[in-house]
Design a binder for these strands. Structure first.
Length: 377
RNA sequence: GGAGAGGUAGCGAAGUGGCUAAACGCGGUGGACUGUAAAUCCACUCUCUACGAGUUCGAUGGUUCGAAUCCGUCCCUCUCCA
């Protein structure tokens, strides 16, 4: 197997665990937060920024790179790593999320999904085979199965059909990838809020030879309790010797809840998107830096953070950048927010190793001002 | 001095008798954002004792059931010519 998972420490308090995932482009400790670089760039950042932040693995996106500049172009460039100047691991999402996010522009069929291009209206067709072909051209370390990310809420009947189709597509992805021994492939567990379907989907996928298992279809508007409940029933079905990836989750509270339940990998656009929109995640909670209260606040964004932004700039300056529409603000907040989540998972790893993860989680919740019912970032 | 154009909410700018407390843009103030159609989107932005009420469209006096819109006078700005 191209992707190796080595368990380093299983928490004695809960399902949380520390492991090492090895890929063709290096290894990283889990739990880990992966920044998202959909179009071959973690928006506003260069490789050195990500290295300084401590990012070991980032994401790229099949659907978007397929459309622009085209996977063949990336292949000619020498693959996505070389094209975007990233020397560590890359995980590519399959386009399955676009089945959800571009719902108004697509039609799902057994053979695949027909999209109307979001910019030029062109007819597009993405299937399990094509998604694998694209990801092989991109040369990511970890590829994702092409799935349907169903919406929430969703009827049981629809979900059941969707899960069965996603399972058939998972088989097709494996078939299309048989001769590939340089990239890993993860299966995606769907089933929405329905425990029975989640367990069924997980059990079926576990029978297939994937390098890791991910839980998809979360953070699509469902309450937090559902997300945790899903993990409670799915994780026990998953093997101990493979990584577990919760897709699209990036709020501090949800990440810690999931780590507690045995999740190893996370990705989310939240830190980079809200950064560009002027919001920061800090030790003591969310800061909307554009707000007037920071106009003359000459303290760091987060005085417990040692990221490039917090070491060098003040809240007043950051607010100024946003009010003046200066791009540096987007960049500095992106650096900070990603590092916040990277450090959050790093802290979790240390806590797990020291058998004090639950205490760690309680402290983060308390400092951040989170509770089990309210907003979790 | 002569000819012309114009003065609308913080700014720019629509509106030229009732559907106008007054479009729209900017600015301002809040908020949202979770496998990125996102440097995006939403709300509020005359005043108040605020699901109602009160004052507005340079000033003032008229016409009219009713005026930012029509008429008189005054003030101010800009352009061109002397």
């Amino acid at each position: 197997m191209v992707i190796k998972y080595q368990l380093k420490k299983q928490s004695e308090e809960c399902q949380a665990r520390v492991g090492i995932v090895t890929t063709p482009h290096g290894s990283f400790e889990t739990p880990v937060f992966m920044a998202v670089g959909t179009q071959g760039t973690v928006k506003t950042l260069v490789k050195e920024d990500l290295h300084e932040i401590g990012s070991q693995i980032i994401l790229g996106n099949t659907y978007h790179l397929w459309n622009q500049p085209g996977h063949k172009t990336v292949e000619k460039a020498g693959g996505l790593h070389k094209f975007m100047n990233w020397d560590r691991s890359i995980l590519t999402d399959s386009g399955g999320f676009q089945v959800f996010s571009l719902a108004k522009l697509r039609d799902i069929h057994e053979e695949g999904v027909y999209f109307k291009h979001h910019k030029n209206g062109a007819k597009l067709f993405l299937s399990p085979e094509i998604a694998i072909e694209i990801q092989r051209s991109l040369g990511s370390d970890i590829m994702m199965c092409f799935d349907e990310c169903p919406p929430y809420p969703c009827s049981y009947e629809y979900m059941k059909n969707s899960v069965d189709r996603t399972l058939r597509w998972a088989n097709r992805c494996l078939d299309a990838n048989k001769d590939n021994n340089s990239q890993g492939l993860f299966g995606i567990i769907q089933g929405g809020e329905y425990d029975e379907l989640r367990v069924y989907c997980a059990e079926e996928l576990v029978k297939m030879p994937f390098d890791g298992y991910s839980i998809g279809g979360t953070s699509v508007g469902e309450p937090k309790e559902i997300q945790n409940k899903v993990l409670d029933c799915v994780v026990p079905v998953l093997p101990h010797d493979k990584p577990r990836y919760l897709m699209g989750v990036g709020s501090p509270g949800a990440i810690l809840d999931a780590i507690e339940r045995g999740i190893d990998m996370f990705d989310c656009v939240l830190p980079t998107r809200i950064a560009r929109h002027g919001t920061a995640m800090t030790t003591n909670g969310r800061v909307i830096i554009k707000n007037k209260e920071f106009a003359e606040d000459f303290t760091p964004l987060d005085n417990k953070c040692d990221c490039y932004c917090c070491k060098n700039y003040t809240r007043a300056y950051l607010r100024h950048l946003f009010k003046a529409n200066e791009l540096l603000g987007h960049r500095l907040l992106s650096i900070h927010n990603i590092q916040f989540l990277v450090k959050l998972t790093e802290g979790a790893r240390e806590a797990i190793k020291n058998n004090c993860f639950l205490e760690y989680k309680r402290k983060v919740y308390s400092d951040y001002g989170l509770n089990d019912n309210g907003k979790d970032f």
